[in-house]
Nucleic acid binder design. Structure first.
Length: 255
RNA sequence: GGCGACGUGGCCGAGUGGCUAGGCAAGGGCCUGCAAAGCCCUGUACACCGGUUCGAGUCCGGUCGUCGCCU
């Protein structure tokens, strides 16, 4: 979500190449992100420097590091067409139609998962499939030699940090930031930024509580994906940032 | 002290005398172009005691507690 411009406080933006690059009405996608990430990383490496990829969930991180061979983007109109099909005929029929066209994809997707059923159907139109022939998502393969590090923090510490960060957002003026942002149209992806609606619609105390809950969930979600990344090195994140940095460098040198 | 209202699973919140409300959170799982998202699965709770009834969160009585008003 840090790719969006206009939300430096809410998305906790820092310096970085792919930070604040898209307007809020831009629909995000792994495909586009992957192209930009690869270009940025290659450019940095070509300049003889080290590129550091930070944050996100497993899918986006792997997309940045590996050649995922993502299936093609939807053809204009086909997504809307299949969404209408899904809504008109119902989940069961849409899923049955998918099973006729792409058995493997149908087996991987639940009928109620409208988003994925539609995506799988539109891919059959493009002669592709939701299930790639080569699955590189959770393989160790990367485009460049890479060290993947995850940071572990005890739950209680994490909780404290999340709350402190959330409260700091308000002190830094998230409310104004959000107000400004909501004056203009949002893409469906940007609308999902944690805190956007909470800040706009809830009393401050409630907004903080809700954001803390959603952020905690997100952190748990990230941790879950991290565990699936082959070769990831887990380090203790419950210490000052410079010590964490030293620990990472140590692991890198040992390699 | 009197009167009244209320007391439902971690939280919020429906509930007709007789068959699982639901939402959020939590736990588990799926997921290659919406991933700070989407989807699937998982909770037998009704303050306590007694009574009425074939059967009571749902009716009656009492106890305790919370809130409000009164003295």
């Amino acid at each position: 979500m840090q790719v969006y411009e206009g939300l430096p406080i809410l998305t906790n933006q820092g310096p970085g190449r792919l930070v604040a690059i898209w307007p809020l009405d831009h629909e995000a996608s792994v495909g586009e992100y992957q192209r930009l990430a690869h270009a940025a990383i290659d450019e940095i490496l070509a300049a003889g420097r080290l590129s550091i990829v930070v944050g996100g969930t497993g899918l986006y991180l792997r997309a940045a590091l590996a050649e995922l061979a993502l299936p093609p983007a939807p053809q204009p109109g086909t997504r809307a067409r299949w969404e209408r099909f899904y809504d008109k005929h119902g989940a069961a029929d849409a899923h049955a139609e998918l099973a006729r066209r792409d058995e493997r994809a149908a087996a991987a997707v639940h009928a109620n998962d409208r988003r994925r059923v539609v995506r799988a159907l539109e891919l059959t139109d493009a002669g592709s499939s939701l299930r790639p022939l080569v699955d590189r998502l959770w393989q160790e393969s990367t485009r460049h030699p890479s060290l993947v590090v995850g940071l572990d923090v005890p739950p209680a510490v994490l909780e404290r940090r999340i709350r402190a960060r959330t409260e700091a957002m308000f002190e830094r003026g998230v409310e104004d930031e959000v107000r400004r942002v909501l004056e203009r149209p949002l893409s469906t992806t940007a609308a999902k930024v944690i805190g956007l609606h909470e800040v706009a619609e809830l009393p401050r105390e409630e907004a903080v509580d809700r954001i803390v809950v959603r952020t905690r969930r997100y952190a748990a979600y990230q941790r879950k994906w991290m565990r699936r990344i082959p070769g990831i090195v887990m380090l203790d994140g419950d210490r000052p940032a410079d010590e964490v940095a030293d620990a990472i460098l140590e692991v890198a040198r040992a390699r």
